[in-house]
């Protein structure tokens, strides 16, 4: 099993056709709005909207859960940590040795947990429906980001799969030399660092050769043309509108409910 992040299996029919920039715009807008405030109303509005849009991804609930369980777990952990460490005001709900949960600290925890999920999902939408090559095309052609860096990053990303394979091979090769992933934690850490170093050496060798191959093919010399044009369609208008609508509704609902709680002033 090798990892090929540049040619992912895209899901859904509609969203992969949209320009990556409009998806990025919508996802960033929604993420920013959720991040600006820690309150359960805005987080819940965004989360519910995202869940309603999930069918667009065209994957079953089970597949989605398989993909996102670490994210759910992280949200739970974050909620727990906040409930444990937030200011302890309001009625005491549970006291057990040093551990104290109060009404307010638990409310804060719930807000943080919902917010965590609401922040994570736009990333899932973007990743499962966007081909990185298309994103690079859009960033360089539409956003006018420097093409040398965009394409350099893309070329680097192509090596992810190779480097993951190389990591495995390194592990076996070192085991054959007598340094397996075994022994006490210190030995394991040393072995891990050694293997990491080995990977970086190979990565730099590959990168130097790749840079030479790219330069030999005229890369970085001056202006270039693009074999595929990055375009916007009416679909992109809808995607952007959806982002604006979700973000606007979240803010309006939170302000109306009186829970809007601007980040910097929090705590």
């Amino acid at each position: 099993m090798s990892v090929d992040v540049l040619t992912p299996h895209l899901t859904g029919r509609l969203l992969p056709r949209a320009n990556p920039l409009s998806k990025l715009f919508a996802a960033v807008l929604v993420t920013v709005v959720v991040m600006l405030s820690i309150d359960w109303v805005s987080a819940a509005v965004v989360l519910v909207s995202e869940l309603l849009l999930l069918p667009l991804l065209g994957i079953s609930a089970w597949q989605l859960l398989k993909r996102t369980w670490p994210l759910v777990l992280a949200a739970v952990v974050a909620a727990y940590g906040t409930a444990l460490l937030a200011e302890k005001t309001g009625a005491v709900l549970l006291e057990f040795g040093p551990i104290l949960f109060t009404q307010d600290s638990v409310n804060s925890g719930i807000a943080i947990g919902l917010r965590g999920l609401a922040i994570a999902l736009p990333g899932i939408f973007l990743l499962t429906t966007t081909d990185p090559t298309d994103l690079a095309d859009a960033l360089a052609q539409k956003l006018r980001m420097p093409h040398r860096f965009v394409l350099g990053a893309l070329a680097g990303l192509r090596l992810v799969g190779l480097l993951v394979d190389e990591w495995r091979t390194l592990g076996l090769a070192r085991h054959a030399r007598g340094v397996g992933f075994e022994g006490n934690p210190v030995a394991r850490l040393r072995n891990f660092l050694g293997q990491g170093f080995g990977l970086i050496v190979q990565a730099i060798r590959r990168a130097t050769r790749l840079a030479m191959a790219m330069e030999a093919r005229g890369f970085g010399a001056g202006d270039r043309t693009w074999a595929r044009e990055s375009t916007f369609t009416r679909l992109d208008l809808w995607v952007c509108l959806a982002g604006v609508l979700i973000a606007g509704t979240a803010v309006a609902a939170a302000v109306w409910a009186g829970t809007w709680n601007f980040l910097i002033g929090a705590s």
């Binding site: 990491g196 990977l199 970086i200 990168a207 790219m214």
Partner: peptide
Amino acid sequence: QWRVVDIVVASVVAVAVGVV
């Protein structure tokens, strides 16, 4: 100023660290 080799090696080092 960045040369091509700077860009590509920076990219791949970042990718490798990401993998590690």
